[in-house]
Design a protein around this nucleic acid. Structure first.
Lengths: 164, 164
DNA sequence: ATACAGCTGAACAGATTGCCCAGCGAAGAC
DNA sequence: GTCTTCGCTGGGCAATCTGTTCAGCTGTAT
């Protein structure tokens, strides 16, 4: 279920040079092409690799402002609120959480002024009791997965070591 | 700077079927291959499309628990804290924000128990005054970009309409 | 009127893909 | 100890796609 050292190298390589292709990968990794192909197939059917969708930069689309909003929801209105938020394009993701807030969502906007419009649209819905927003100033660690992959791959290696 | 209707269709198509290739795309969109190729090149050098890295599911790697931590930082320790958090593989992203917290980070862990270890590692650093964590229970809207792309593309179309 | 930028349709060689096979070695099952 | 299974190797095949270039066309801006 977890990943192998070779799997880890495949993912890391793919993350660094996405356009690389199976053949070139097999060359770099020093294994047969069929092996890489089989590993990739397995990683994808495992669900470890969900896909290769393009990473789009909202800032380049004209939405340079990012914010996180914590929402408090009226009891029993969860489903409605979820459906509402799903219709707002500026809502990039939505989580339900434990803690004081009930939901946390990531928003983008064209400007700080525009953020007001987005927030109004987000919270202008009956089931939402209260919202508190934090505007993102800087993003010192952009969404990343490589360190975790390496960690997981090393874990596998360590396990091998112990088991053998 | 913003994107065009055709750009929008390209991105959406690419998001839905990432392995599709330029040729097939040109067929589906009813334009010449060269056009799609030129658009893609432009989108990438624009920075609108950052890349095509594999989307890895942390849950499938053995990290099914996600949490968001809000951190308060001691004045002037920001840089150190950033550097510290960057070394923790379970920290998937980090933002500095306005509001009561100073930073917001996304964490993953192998289990709720393991989350404690991760949080200890995250906050076990001198510059961090306080941390409050919200565990993610559900993810009704996974990170998405398509609606925003469509919005941006429609905006472009509307602008055309007005300008012409 | 004229230059420019973007799109089209076509062509080319070169590289890659998906798929197949037989052989090999290690691990586990019997 | 022997057998079976599994994963990896190295090779080959036809089909497809890529990167690149070209000339011609059109609408727009100067």
């Amino acid at each position: 279920m977890a990943i192998d050292h070779l799997d880890g190298r495949i993912i890391v390589l793919l993350a660094r040079e996405p356009r690389i292709g199976v053949l070139e990968m097999s060359r770099r990794l020093g294994v047969a092409r069929g092996t890489v192909q089989a590993r990739l197939d397995r990683l994808q059917s495992n669900g470890v690799i969900r896909g290769f969708g393009p990473e789009v930069d909202p800032a380049a689309l004209g939405y340079p402002v990012t914010a996180f909003a914590t929402l408090q929801i009226r009891q029993g209105q969860g489903a409605d609120v979820r459906a509402h938020l799903a219709t707002v394009p500026e809502v990039l993701e939505l989580h339900t959480t434990t803690g004081t807030g009930d939901m946390l969502c990531r928003l983008v906007a064209r400007s700080n002024a525009d953020l007001q419009r987005v927030i109004d649209r987000v919270v202008g819905f009956d089931g939402i009791v209260r919202a508190s927003t934090a505007i993102v100033m800087e993003n010192p660690v952009p969404l990343r997965i490589i360190p975790l992959v390496q960690q997981a791959a090393l874990g596998a290696q360590a396990a091998e070591g112990r088991e053998t």
